[in-house]
Design a protein around this nucleic acid. Structure first.
Ligand code: FES
Ligand code: FES
Lengths: 147, 147
DNA sequence: CTCTTTCTTGACTATTTCGGTCAACTTAGT
DNA sequence: ACTAAGTTGACCGAAATAGTCAAGAAAGAG
């Protein structure tokens, strides 16, 4: 049940863009520095995100990455779908022809339920939620001087 | 979010034992034939199941595999735990020291929720549930002549 | 127009994990 | 003893992962 680094880093990439975008694009180089990721690896994460319409990029000086949609319209499931493909724990869920004993397989139903459970979480969360959670954590760190 | 064949085959192995055990042990050779799995691969699945106290084996003639506990006391989570290890989508959930930005990481919380979601499913199901579902499917296949 | 900055694309490699096979060994019954 | 099981651990090939890099194309600045 492992998530690959694509999904992991990709989510952090998006969150980083969300947190640091102030109108202008965010540069990959800065993301790499902040998130301690290899610039060359990031490039491979951006491509599918562009293809999935999650992100726009502009080249040249002052270029970089910016979100293609409002925060609250980018679901975590979109990100994972784009970077990891299906969340099915096993191939025959997406493609019943994959296993022969298709219909009568009890275990297949179970894996289906697991997929549904994780999809529920992923679809209920948007980048906006992540940003808000992040801010809450930040505030929790600072004692509230203003009281 | 993939399940490896260990978890997949292991679950089928256990279900097969549950369905065909009539007091005596079930032989690996028969399981391999019925489930169309390699006998040599099955051996690697049995070892951890024995270690986890899920299954007992007896050697020699008429030997084989039998369940170490009643059907309803074998949870799917036990099986997966034993064959796949943790269900954590990412290492830093089990071992916070794995990532440095431990406490403040928002995405980590998400992966934790996903793990919890899948664990909920896995812990709510026992081998007994699987057997019952199987029987239901069997009955559904046969038209009810007895009406 | 040209130079620089930035993303883009695709090739390449190293490492790890997976899936599978096998042989030698141990144990238990007959 | 003999035979029929499971046990253990070595081994291998293929594939997926993770990561690096270089050549190129677009966009701005001057
Ligand atoms: S049908 Fe694919 S695992 Fe049973
Ligand atoms: S702490 Fe491990 S992914 Fe953030």
């Amino acid at each position: 049940m492992k998530l690959s680094t694509k999904g992991e880093y990709g989510t952090r990439l998006l969150l980083d863009v969300a947190l640091h975008s102030r109108g202008e694009p965010v540069q990959l180089r800065d993301i790499a520095r902040r998130e301690k990721l290899s610039l060359w690896y990031l490039e491979h994460l951006v491509a599918p995100l562009v293809a999935g319409g999650i992100v726009r990029t502009t080249r040249g000086p002052k270029g970089g990455v910016s979100l293609a949609r409002p925060l609250e319209e980018i679901k975590l499931s979109d990100i994972i779908q784009q970077l990891e493909g299906s969340t099915a724990p096993i191939a025959c869920i997406d493609d019943p022809k994959f296993c022969d004993r298709s219909g009568s397989c009890v275990t297949r139903d179970i894996w289906g339920e697991i997929q549904k459970a994780t999809d529920n979480v992923l679809e209920s969360l948007t980048l906006k939620d992540l940003v808000e959670r992040h801010k809450q954590k930040e505030e929790a760190k600072q004692p509230m001087y203003f009281i």
